[in-house]
């Protein structure tokens, strides 16, 4: 068993010797620092994403008293010719149904709905709005395509620069990797091919 293990180790060392550059063991502190940084970074990112809280917003109250609905139809004079009869007879069932569709459009001036019912609003065809309100909104929602991720090149470059700075800071925090980096830079400046100084 021990012989076999020794053989595996020998073969492994031989393989690494063939693949890796000469004196590549000198890179190990760099490799260690890089892997350590990557693992730490990934863990930090994951915890940041998990800690990011998202919330929904509460909406407006849709149920209004009869007096408010009657006032809405009375105050918006242009609705008079269409719904005058219902207002006079106090037909709250019909008025409530119309209010659901017309209040966001004429009362609150929802820009999305105003665009969606532009033709009917121009022709003051309010009954048609009430008739097709639900189906048209559903259709518009179905037709909308998902938003793409915006390409914010400067943000991305900034993030990469910040990551690089973090990486260097981490790397230079270890004496061994600091020495290895210094050695590589020194050899590059001296123009040596293998990247390491010859022993004196």
């Amino acid at each position: 068993m021990a012989d076999r293990f020794e053989q595996v180790l020998k073969n492994g060392t031989k393989l690494l010797k063939d693949i890796l550059p000469k004196k590549s063991y000198l890179y190990f502190p760099l490799l260690f620092s890089t892997l350590f940084w990557l693992v730490k970074r990934r863990k930090d990112w994951k915890s940041k994403v998990m800690a990011w809280k998202v919330w929904a917003d509460p909406g407006r109250i849709r149920l209004k008293p009869d007096a408010f609905i009657l006032y809405f139809f009375d105050f918006n004079g242009k609705l008079g010719p269409e719904f005058g009869r219902e207002v006079e007879t106090n037909n709250m069932r019909a008025l409530r149904k119309a209010f659901v569709a017309l209040y966001p459009l004429i009362g609150l001036e929802d820009p999305f709905l105003c665009g969606l019912f532009h033709e009917e609003l121009k022709k003051e065809n309010y009954r048609e709005i009430v008739r097709v309100y639900g189906t048209r909104i559903q259709q518009a929602k179905t037709d909308l395509s998902p938003a793409g991720t915006e390409k914010r090149i400067f943000d991305a470059l900034g993030r990469i620069a910040s990551e690089a700075a973090d990486f260097l800071e981490e790397l230079l925090g270890y004496t061994e990797s600091r020495d290895a980096v210094a050695e590589v830079i020194k050899s590059l400046l001296e123009g040596r091919e293998d990247g390491y100084a010859e022993p004196e």
């Binding site: 890796l20 550059p21 590549s24 890089t34 892997l35 293998d194 990247g195």
Partner: peptide
Amino acid sequence: DMPNRSKIAGCFFMILGFIGTAACVS
């Protein structure tokens, strides 16, 4: 040859860094 190997090793570190950064955008 040796200079090529040094360059490959350098590229290896850089690629590791970028993969690490990109992988964070989950």
